[in-house]
């Protein structure tokens, strides 16, 4: 089996990248981080899921940044074009670019983490750090619920199509079909949740007290050192940023 990154190492890397990028506020660095995230996503074969998810989050965000700062940037001096109150200024565009690339880098880094992390490893690592197991369970369920729901919906759709339901193009037909699928889906999910809760109780999940973990997640010393270094680097970047942008007039 390929040596996996400890979940905390991946999480630290993603978080540090986000912090450093934000602190640096230097768009070429943001672009480099974003490109690195895309490169890693391609290498880990998750680009097909990371990129669409990123697009869903980032497209409206970047568009709104462009509209907001590109057109209405009060501090803008270099006017490139003007329509009434809307002025396209070089400063505004620069600011939008800065903010857009920075957000893109952060979003990509965290998406890469969430699509590559092994959820069981993460839950087990959290349990090892005395995080309440309920937290780990909720986290794991959130990540496993969506695939489970989509499998279930697919089965319901098949069963219903088999009863002669033809879903036509068009919103009304699709919404009608969705309504019919929601009833069995919700009933099944409630039913599942009820019986699973009873089983979890019986297996001691709700009991207070200490726990042990069966799964061992390898945490080599090199990764620990990397995490420490990344955290120090991120802290240094933040400190550097604070010093650099200390209000003028205060002697540094």
């Amino acid at each position: 089996m390929k040596q996996r990154l400890h979940p905390f190492t991946a999480l630290t890397a993603a978080a540090s990248a986000a912090v450093v990028t934000t602190a640096a506020a230097y768009w070429p660095l943001s672009v480099a981080v974003a490109l690195a995230a895309v490169f890693l996503a391609v290498r880990r074969e998750v680009a097909g899921r990371v990129l669409p998810a990123a697009a869903v989050i980032l497209t409206p965000l970047c568009l709104s940044l462009l509209v907001l700062h590109g057109l209405f940037f009060p501090e803008g001096q270099t006017v490139l074009a003007q329509w009434g109150p809307a002025r396209v200024t070089a400063e505004g565009l620069g600011f939008a670019l800065e903010l857009g690339t920075r957000t893109t880098a952060c979003v990509l880094a965290f998406l890469l983490f969430s699509f590559t992390v092994s959820v069981p490893d993460l839950v087990s690592a959290l349990a090892g750090r005395r995080v309440p197991p309920q937290f780990g369970f909720v986290l794991a369920s959130t990540l496993t619920l969506l695939p489970a729901v989509s499998v279930r919906l697919d089965r319901i759709r098949q069963a219903q199509e088999t009863r002669g339901m033809v879903v036509r193009r068009g919103l009304v037909s699709r919404l009608g079909a969705l309504r019919l699928q929601m009833v069995p889906l919700v009933l099944a999910l409630i039913d599942d949740a009820g019986s699973r809760a009873q089983a979890l109780d019986a297996r001691g999940f709700g009991s207070p007290g200490p726990r042990t973990t069966y799964r061992e997640v390898a945490d080599p010393p090199a990764q620990r050192r990397f995490r420490a270094a990344a955290l120090v680097f991120a802290a240094a970047a933040v400190a550097g940023r604070i010093v650099a942008s200390w209000p003028a007039g205060v002697p540094s």
Binding site: S118, V119, P120, V123, A127, P133, G136, F137, A140, S141, T144, A148, R196, A199, L200, R203, G204, F205, S207, G209, P210, R211, T212, T213, Y214, R215
Partner: peptide
């Protein structure tokens, strides 16, 4: 099943983990 365990062995151990 707990539905959050990755292998059969871990699923078997789930109840024991909760009892430390």
């Amino acid at each position: 099943l707990s539905s959050v365990r990755a292998t059969v062995a871990e699923e078997l151990a789930f109840g024991l983990e909760n009892r430390a």
